[in-house]
Design a protein around this nucleic acid. Structure first.
Lengths: 215, 215
DNA sequence: CCAAAAGTGTTTCACTTACACCCATGA
DNA sequence: TCATGGGTGTAAGTGAAACACTTTTGG
């Protein structure tokens, strides 16, 4: 541990990989950069950490500013700090990943960005800085996590059908999932409750709705 | 992403949780602080990140300085950045955890610390800053990781007996492990090779030595 | 020959996987 | 009545857990 603070200090930012499911696809929010370097290129939303806010609060603030939501799933991902990752100087980026349910997201124009858009993670443009690497890592984490935990629910509204949840898994894992085994496994986890409601909109047999127990 | 760097900058340090197995116990290297705050208290080894070195290099450097080893297992753990975690000002700490095998560690006195010592993680003194929280998280990660991966080998010398490896697991998990199932499981992983050597020192039946394949 | 650690297989149980048909509804 | 997505069970296979005795060596 240091004795002194008379030491050159790097800049510290938080970048947030914000995922959602929309149009039957896994999407990530990207911001088109309005200034150099990488002007016009797409980048992850992010910004400086204020001196009086925690890292997680900074990430939550970004999320609020860029997507206009709070109380969503937010997890620290990794801290990227290669000396040359930003051409302007030493910037250390503490990265987070967030899961936002498709019905809540309402993108706001970010104050420091020309444009914000949801992009399919399977058809990504060229990204600024090392953001492609960050995003790839986030996808890898999401895929692992969905197999061992219950984060999948975070991408759905409070009431959802099992078919919708299954689609979330299929989209993220990019492989078909067996319907019967999926339902058995999910129900066996005991984390969701069957509701006495069905979905009204479909043209076919109405699907039973479920809800995630703890949130 | 920021436009400007005219922004207050926090200090950034790396702290390293260095584990080893010694005296049939899981040990962590702690440094006695020689200055305020927390003067005289034990703390994790750590220090500032130089402007031209990566975070991982900074952690490796600390490891080299404090324990005198390189080429050991090193993994980023978490970044702690609560605004009040250091009474002197805003300090963000990128934490790593390292696994050092018991035969290699030769503690050196650290340049900025009065003393460095291995402590049992089960009999810890009061630690400086939020280092207890960091250490608890590192132990949790180690326990998880050892169940799903092969990091256990990193705590042993290149040639080891299966009994020694089993003890590593028992010490970390703090529960007895079934010998036959353990051997089956480890061998089935296909990550270690049986050597044509036995351990010479024991007073009883000599144990076969094994080696980790990829390192 | 005794004490102590090394080494070795089989059975049981739980969980995962593969797989195909009927149901309910709106058009 | 038909097209479409919703919903259900069983059998086989795979991996984890429980469990006790024989072997080899040094003293």
């Amino acid at each position: 541990m240091p004795y002194t603070y008379e030491y050159p200090r790097p800049s510290v930012t938080v970048d947030v990989v914000i995922f959602t499911i929309a149009d039957d696809d896994l999407k990530v929010l990207l911001i088109r950069r309005g200034a150099e370097p990488f002007k016009g290129k797409w980048a992850l939303p992010g910004g400086f950490v204020n001196m009086d806010e925690s890292l997680e609060r900074a990430a939550a603030r970004e999320l609020k500013e860029e997507v206009g939501v709070s109380d969503v799933y937010l997890e620290q991902l990794f801290t990227f700090g290669e000396p040359k990752r930003d051409p302007r100087g030493r910037v250390i980026s503490v990265c987070y990943f967030a899961l936002v349910d498709a019905t809540r997201q309402t993108i706001r124009a970010a104050s420091d960005a020309a444009d914000a858009e949801w992009h399919s993670v399977f058809k990504l443009p060229r990204l600024a800085f090392d953001h492609r690497q960050i995003l790839d890592y986030a996808i890898w984490r999401l895929r692992n996590k969905i197999e061992w935990t219950t984060v999948g629910y975070e991408l759905l509204p409070p009431k959802f059908t099992l078919s919708a949840l299954q689609r979330v898994y299929e989209i993220i894992l990019q492989k078909p999932v067996d319907k019967r085994n999926f339902r058995k496994r999910i129900l066996a986890q005991g984390q969701i409750t069957e509701l006495n409601e069905t979905r009204a909109d479909g043209a076919h047999r109405p699907a039973r709705l479920f809800a995630f127990k703890a949130k």
